[in-house]
Nucleic acid binder design. Structure first.
Length: 917
RNA sequence: GGGCGCUUAGCUCAGCUGGUUCAGAGCGCCUGCCUUACAAGCAGGAGGUCGGCGGUUCGAAUCCGUCAGCGCCCACCA
């Protein structure tokens, strides 16, 4: 059989994937569950943005999902992975707008309808490229079920949900301060406005007091309020502080804390708001912190959420002084009108200086929110928006976490989730965009009636007028994503798919969308399906660069997974990210050095390839016998490797259950490389050549193929391509009965009867011996190729059983000729090894093997005794026991404790001697 | 201002319920090997008082307290 000495991923991966696809191996119909009664296992993909390109975060997340899906599929579950993409309102609209900008056009030039059509075109052309990229890394999604959050079925679900919630009173329209992106011209949810720490300035502005308050001011001033003072013209002023001086143009009041006796006399008075010619009141409000700044706050209801609330409490109307572009608007004084907010900030400060009202500025760090899409500084803005009342929806979703119906991995996210759910705020769902689900609300131009309907209305239900106008806004992208786990199956229809595949099992995603998406999906699951959409939420690692920075486009520190697949293969990428990301930790990769970053995975895949290549070449194409048929001819190495495989299967299955994918990779790696390749393959070489006779050869062939079959099955979810390629070539006797593909083969059952503690113990000692001989050879400078004779000292148990077989192994692995056993002679030598007359090596094994074993035995013994000791002591501290038990029983316990104590100490002394030796 | 996490070899990190993986892996480094599966490899080796201090325990990288440094999330302090 001709196989390349190096794995060529490009040579096998695309064709294998095509073969899987052609045979529809990833596809599953509801019949498999409803008719055949198979237990489902369902993952619904976190839909990437249509316009996105694959990045390492996707690479990791989708590898994780594919590992879980492939593993469950092999376990016999009806494993379904539903793929799809998200229309990503703002993100996509921005991309298309940028394209238009290059053509010198704006979306307004095109008009709404043409713009949306243009966006659809764009999405149809380039959208979904990311799905092809997911295929490149081996994702075994059921592509026949690919959905899009804006396709007709999902749009129907969205509309149903909106109307349902509206009718239930959970959707309302209201005027509030929302986060407004002046560049995207839309409202943002709180979660979409990301705060960044900024070293800014706090400006102190002086507002002259209106006449009539002189007396109170003077007395407050002498009482120590540094914030009050007198202008050269004799007027009194107070000082307020702000990070955004331009908003003072919209000030409607100044507020102090009602309990602040310094300013008690001022409340009810007025100040002359500079630059505006307006006179505004001084009010009292609990919100004001008298310790911060001057203890006086300017109130700008239209441009700050807290000020808005204060103004509402005081019955003061807001005054909006900005345009949607965050320029100073018509309500601002003429001198500032049209200025950008940052220009206006400077201008206002200058104007205050000009009037002698500037009280200086001080450095001040604070968080300013930015648009998560375009990074523009968000402006709080008063406007009318649609909201979802979240509290009632949150209740069952919170309970689900508390009672363990939904669990989080790693567990610490449970707390984060619950904290957010307990303090949940209403969700602003309207967006002033064109790309997205249109809000199903119409206003009657004649009678002002509001219609909310599942089907587009043609006439007003109140007055019959046909002059209806639909709300211009669209819904937040997440308003369709939160329905994803059931809308992909055809909800609100009661489809077969829904019956078979809802609820799903695992959701794997990035921690940063826990609130955006995960929490809301759970809420929607309860509200519309009556149960949570999945049981386990796996929050995966964040992919960072070598400096620990999150990979991002703007930093330019990203890694293109397709380049990695191209250069090293999908298997290399998959194995690297899985073994690099332990539960709860991040993964660090170097974008500057892909070779170094992906070497672990690449090297391992190649190792698997070569071990397979060796097996196929040396075993030949004649079918091997089943294991039972060679049972009587198994040698130590055979029994050992089978036992090791059995244990690895056992451990790996357990780790997978706990989502410990990193450990799974680690275990499989060490079994494959450390046990199978380094030891078993080496041991079996002479046997495969027939040097030890036909029986030995047949046993070796069978065991080798059996073990390789097992480990390939185990490894398949991690590195599906190289395992599939090799597995298909294994010379099984029952080749005709097995499934066409490894991916459809069964997960190996843990086989207790294969475990063989004796073989493992003997083999461990043998390995130790071989390593010692190799070390000694090196130490004494025995040439690589030269053979030495070994004189063994001590009585290692290794050679008590099948002496010849084991001696043979040592000869094979350590290039040893004759092995003789001269206990007394070597003991006299005293050292671990001594080279005699050039070719004869003395190896004293007592100092090596037996010591290791004795130490372990001692530790075990100490553990057992210490356990008893602790229990006995507890008993002796128990008042109930001391009071009620007969004297002699208590005495006996005391004796027991003392004796145990003594024994433990004795053993510990002994252990110390061993460790010292 | 609250909440969470991290600190183990030169680098990136494992180490789950304290003791049979207990001081580990990969990369890097040193020495010797193109040994008929693999130089993307093989064999051997150097390298760490597990962030500091204190405590619990027969026994602590592991549990508790505290200090220091780093990181993340949430929050309206103008």
């Amino acid at each position: 059989m001709e196989l390349a000495p190096r794995l060529d991923p490009r040579g096998i991966e695309p064709s294998l994937y095509a073969a899987w696809m052609e045979r529809r191996e990833f596809h599953l119909s509801p019949d498999s569950v409803t008719r055949d009664g198979r237990e489902p296992f369902v993952i619904v993909i976190p839909p990437p943005n249509v316009t996105a390109v694959l990045h390492m975060g996707h690479g990791l997340n989708n590898t994780i999902q594919d590992v879980l899906i492939r593993w469950r599929r092999m376990q016999g579950r009806a494993a379904l992975w539903v793929p799809g993409t998200d229309h990503a309102g703002i993100a996509t609209q921005n991309v298309v707008e940028r394209i238009l900008a290059r053509e010198g056009k704006t979306r307004q030039d095109l008009g709404r309808e043409a713009f949306v059509e243009r966006t659809w075109e764009f999405v149809r052309e380039t959208g979904g490229a990311i799905l092809d990229q997911l295929k490149a890394i081996g994702s075994s999604c059921d592509w026949e079920r690919t959905r899009f959050t804006l396709d007709p079925g999902l749009s129907r679900a969205v509309r149903e949900v909106f109307v349902h919630l509206y009718e239930k009173g959970l959707i309302y329209r209201g005027e509030y301060i929302i986060n407004w992106c002046p560049r995207c011209h839309t409202a943002l949810a709180n979660e979409e406005a990301e705060g960044t720490e900024v070293e800014g300035r706090l400006y102190h502005l002086r507002y002259p007091l209106a006449p009539g308050l002189e007396e109170e001011t003077a007395s407050a001033s002498t009482a120590g309020a540094a914030s009050l003072g007198r202008l050269p013209d004799g007027r009194w002023y107070l000082t307020v502080s702000t990070t955004r001086p331009e908003t003072m143009l919209g000030d409607m009041a100044v507020a102090v804390n009602p309990g602040d006796e310094r300013y008690a006399g001022l409340v009810g008075g007025e100040v002359d708001l500079p630059l505006t010619g307006r006179r505004i009141p001084i009010i009292a409000d609990e919100y004001v912190d008298r310790e911060f700044g001057t203890g006086m706050v300017k109130v700008t209801p239209a441009h700050d959420p807290n000020d808005f609330e204060m103004a509402q409490r005081a019955g003061i109307a807001p005054l909006n002084v900005m345009t949607p572009e965050a320029r100073m608007g018509e309500n601002a004084p003429a001198a500032f009108r049209g200025m950008d907010r940052f220009e206006a900030r400077k201008a206002v400060v200058e104007a205050f200086k000009g009037e002698g009202l500037f009280g200086g500025d001080t450095p001040h760090t604070h968080a300013i929110p930015r648009c998560y899409r375009c990074d523009t500084v968000v402006e709080p803005r008063l406007s009318e928006q649609w909201f979802v009342r979240m509290k009632p929806l949150a209740e069952p979703a919170l309970a689900a976490s508390r009672d363990g119906t939904v669990t989080f991995v790693p567990e610490r996210w449970k707390k984060v989730y619950e904290h957010w759910m307990e303090n949940i705020r209403d969700w602003c769902i309207s967006r002033q965009l064109w790309w997205g689900h249109r809000i199903p609300v119409w206003y009657c131009r004649d009678c002002g009636h509001t219609l909310v309907a599942r089907e587009d209305p043609t006439a007003c239900s109140a007055c019959g007028s046909e002059r209806l106008e639909q709300d211009p806004d669209v819904l937040d992208t997440w308003f369709s994503s939160w329905l994803w786990p059931f809308s992909v199956f055809g909800w609100p229809e009661r489809t077969e798919d829904l019956k078979a595949f809802y609820p799903g099992h695992v959701l794997s995603t990035a921690p940063e969308i826990l609130f955006f998406w995960v929490a809301r999906m759970i809420m929607a699951g309860y509200e519309f399906m009556g149960e949570a959409p999945f049981r386990t939420v796996y929050l995966h690692a964040t992919v960072r660069d070598i400096q620990g920075r999150k990979m991002s486009k703007s930093l330019g520190n990203g890694i293109d997974p397709l380049e990695v697949v191209e250069r090293f293969g999908a298997d290399a990428l998959r194995f690297t990210v899985i073994s690099g990301a332990a539960v709860g930790t991040d993964i660090h990769l170097d974008p500057q050095d892909l070779e170094a970053s992906f070497a672990p995975g690449r090297n391992f895949a190649n190792k698997v390839w070569n071990a397979g290549r060796f097996t196929l070449m040396s075993v030949g194409e004649d079918p091997v016998r089943p294991l039972e048929k060679v049972q009587g001819h198994l040698e130590l190495a055979d029994r050992w490797i089978i036992s090791r495989l059995a244990r690895t299967v056992q451990a790996r299955t357990q780790e997978l259950e706990k989502f410990r994918l990193h450990d799974v990779a680690d275990l499989a790696y060490h079994f494959f490389w450390g046990d199978l390749a380094d030891w078993y393959l080496e041991l079996v070489k002479p046997r495969l050549k027939g040097e030890r006779g036909e029986e030995s050869r047949e046993a070796a062939r069978t065991v080798l193929v059996t073990v390789l079959d097992g480990i390939l099955r185990l490894l398949h979810p991690l590195i599906p391509f190289v395992t599939e390629e090799l597995w298909q070539k294994l010379p099984w006797p029952w080749a005709s009965e097995r499934p066409r593909f490894l991916m459809a083969a069964s997960w190996p059952e843990p086989r207790r009867e294969w475990e063989d503690a004796d073989a493992e113990g003997q083999m461990a000692a043998l390995q130790e011996l071989v390593t010692q001989i190799r070390r000694l050879r090196k130490e004494y400078g025995v040439p690589e190729g030269a053979q030495v004779d070994v004189v063994l000292a001590g009585a290692p148990e290794v050679f008590r059983g099948t002496l010849e077989e084991e001696a043979q192994a040592v000869r094979t692995l350590a290039r040893v000729g004759a092995i003789t056993w001269e206990r007394e002679k070597a003991r006299g030598a005293g050292a671990h090894g001594v080279l005699l007359n050039g070719t004869e090596l003395f190896v004293s094994l007592e100092g090596v093997i037996d010591l290791v074993r004795e130490k372990a035995r001692l530790q075990g013994e100490i553990g057992r005794l210490a356990g008893q000791l602790t229990a006995t002591r507890k008993k002796l501290e128990n008042q109930g026991f001391l009071g009620k038990a007969p004297e002699e029983v208590v005495a006996r316990e005391r004796e027991k404790a003392a004796s145990l104590q003594e024994q433990v100490e004795k053993l510990q002394d002994k252990l110390r001697v061993f460790e010292g030796a």
